[in-house]
Amino acid sequence: MDPLHTIRRRVVILTAGFLALLLVLWLLTPYKKMVAGAGLGLLVSLYNVLYMARKVRLAGETTLATGSTRHRGTGMINRYLMVALAILVAFKYPMHFDVRTIVVGLPICYILIIVLEFWEVRKLRTTSGKG
């Protein structure tokens, strides 16, 4: 199976699980603003990871098709501006979101990618008898 598809599917499934957990916390606990802020950060994180995956895939396909290693951008400004947008939304609506907890949700998908890939490598080494 295509590694991009595998990684993307796992990250989306786990992030959906985290979002469901945050929804339960939002419903059951009195810390609604904080949980909503973390959820907003998590959504931005998911967008950033999916956008990054798309950019990496497109760059690879372009390089394979043309043979040229020159490529226009990795979409970094777009990702940073999404973070800025999330913080501005929380700043605009302080009755719904806590701005500081957005930072908690922002790196979660990046950490998920790293953990999932190390887990995959460990599994491969165990099955091949090297671990």
Binding site: I7, N48, V49, M52, A53, V56, T74, M76, R79, Y80, V83, V103, L106, P107, Y110, I111, I113, I114, E117
Partner: peptide
């Protein structure tokens, strides 16, 4: 993918 995730997590924060 792992490299960019490692590089970009801290600057995003």
């Amino acid at each position: 993918f792992i490299g960019i995730a490692l590089v970009e997590a801290l600057p995003i924060i």
